[in-house]
């Protein structure tokens, strides 16, 4: 049974965990897993990530989440680091996820070409 004090305690503990304060994990990875995300293939990425985390002990917190409203860009993966820096990757597939793990998580290199702010070359017809 919880009361107000326990609620406050849980809030503080979980906020620390979410903000990666004093945790083993260095990154929090949010995967859009509403129906829109799942339809676009988010489940594959989620399974791949859990497998990788299990196998290679990546210091990541995997968090499935709901729809952020940009259904057209799903599957979306948001990487948050200890400094609170958010990086949103769009239209992610297993290959891109692999690169994110190798470059972003391991070496802290943001893969600009896959992010939502990325520079896209477009052609005018």
């Amino acid at each position: 049974m919880v009361n107000l004090e326990t609620l406050k305690r849980i809030q503080k503990e979980t906020l620390n965990q979410i903000n990666l304060i004093d945790t083993e994990e260095t990154h929090r990875i949010l995967i859009g897993m509403g129906t829109c995300g799942k339809a676009a293939g988010a489940q594959l990425i989620f399974d791949y990530l859990t497998e990788m985390k299990h196998e290679y002990q990546y210091p990541i917190q995997i968090c499935p989440t709901g729809c952020v409203g940009m259904c057209i860009l799903e599957p979306m993966v948001e990487v948050i680091d200890r400094n609170g820096q958010h990086t949103v990757y769009i239209n992610v597939d297993e290959q891109i996820m692999k690169e994110i793990l190798h470059q972003h998580i391991k070496q802290n290199i943001v893969l600009d070409q896959y992010t939502i702010n990325g520079v896209k070359e477009t052609y005018e017809s």
Binding site: L30, G32, G34, C63, P64, T65, G66, C67, V68, G69
Partner: peptide
């Protein structure tokens, strides 16, 4: 909270 927290 949508897209920010784990709903589960």
């Amino acid at each position: 909270n949508s897209g920010r927290i784990n709903p589960e």
